[in-house]
Design a protein around this nucleic acid. Structure first.
Lengths: 218, 218
DNA sequence: ACAAACATACCAACCGGTTGGTATGTTTGT
DNA sequence: ACAAACATACCAACCGGTTGGTATGTTTGT
């Protein structure tokens, strides 16, 4: 009944342990197939502790999506792709980075909020909204790089192509990654996902192909 | 105990009714959240009939994926995009078609096997394999169009680009669509999905941009 | 030609185990 | 002293699957 207040969550507390357990367990089994007892066992806490910190399993789902946002934000903030001078290089390096981290077992490189959105979009709009916030929030961190590259290279998509924006391209990147995860899950390995990221990188390179940096004409 | 034999499935039988119900119910609720009773209620049959035709809920999942393959094969076989003379036009018209059918409620245009693969890949490899067969099987129906377009226009991806094939591009298309569905589910509407399909179409056009049909140089 | 034997398709009632959640404590930090 | 943070014990509802049975064919031996 006391909930939603302890946003900080001191490390080592039951809340933090449950949240961290949720990231791996839900990615492995999916949200519906994950029982509250699974979560408690993985976190090493009792059910009483669980329902002290979360009003319901759904509330844990929302909190897990938010926790995922924090964890991945920190993870991507430290990634090397930000360090390039050229905005387009940053975007391209982002793809290389996303390709590099496609390692280990499926639950390790797969996306929690993509999984939960797929499963819960009809039964819990609260969870779906939290998942959307997480995915769109991540897209919003690369959107400025895309926008900068477009501006710097004089790429105006509304004129030349059918009409798109830095935002729609950033969201499309997330769609490709989410879809790549699904194929990887179906096939049982990351191979297909790597190829899809390659196609995505190739797409962006082609978009900018005739738009070199400064005033160098083709 | 008698099972796996009646592959044809006479229409109107309990088996057919359960299978058809499964397509919509599982797309709406997901596989785990769908109970056997849900399926029986939607199909208008009893549980006894269900377990007469399917050994287990998982077996129904596999059969549903196979049923989905049959239904979608027939659906796409009748679609207009096959009727273009030029192979590249067929691929482009395929995208337009996929974009056009993004209508109605989410469970209506969303993919059963993508949903099931996501949810069941760890708990039932049999289901995941059936889902992979369905998605890869569909990709295999457009792969020849891509290959024909490449050959006709002299596009050799192993030389010019990083290295890709008609097969990997066809699979990438499925990844984009699957990912678009996830974003649509998270956001609660098909808007994002349409934009992703547009990006995909633009990608393929760019791939062939400098490769006109006959001998017309740029 | 016909009945016994068998198969298929289905149904209503039931069962053991699981699941999210609750009620009632006890511990711990300030 | 008191509230936040847990732990223990427990429950009602639900869920996949089973059981015993019926109705309606189909096959087979004579």
């Amino acid at each position: 009944m006391s909930n939603a207040t302890n946003v900080t969550g001191r490390p080592g507390t039951a809340r933090e342990k449950i949240l961290n357990a949720a990231l791996t367990v839900i990615r492995t089994k999916g949200f519906n197939a994950t029982t509250v007892d699974d979560l408690c066992a993985a976190a090493g806490v009792t059910k009483g502790a669980f329902f002290h910190h979360f009003d319901s399993k759904d509330a844990l789902g929302v909190a897990a999506a938010e926790h995922w946002s924090r964890v991945t934000s920190a993870f991507f903030a430290e990634a090397p792709y930000h360090r390039h001078d050229d905005p387009l290089d940053r975007v391209l390096a982002y793809f290389a980075f996303r390709r590099d981290i496609l390692q280990g077992e499926l639950p390790e490189f797969t996306c929690l909020v993509g999984t939960m959105a797929q499963e819960m979009h009809q039964s819990s709009r609260a969870i779906a909204t939290a998942c959307d916030a997480s995915m769109s929030g991540h897209a919003a961190t690369i959107e400025p790089y895309v926008a900068q590259a477009m501006e710097q290279r004089g790429l105006d998509p509304s004129g030349i192509h059918t009409g798109w924006s830095a935002g729609s391209l950033a969201l499309h990147m997330q769609a490709v990654l989410q879809g790549a995860f699904i194929l990887a899950k179906a096939k049982g390995g990351p191979g297909v996902a790597e190829e899809s990221v390659d196609h995505l990188s190739r797409y962006v390179r082609l978009l900018f192909a005739n738009h070199p940096k400064k005033g160098k004409a083709t």
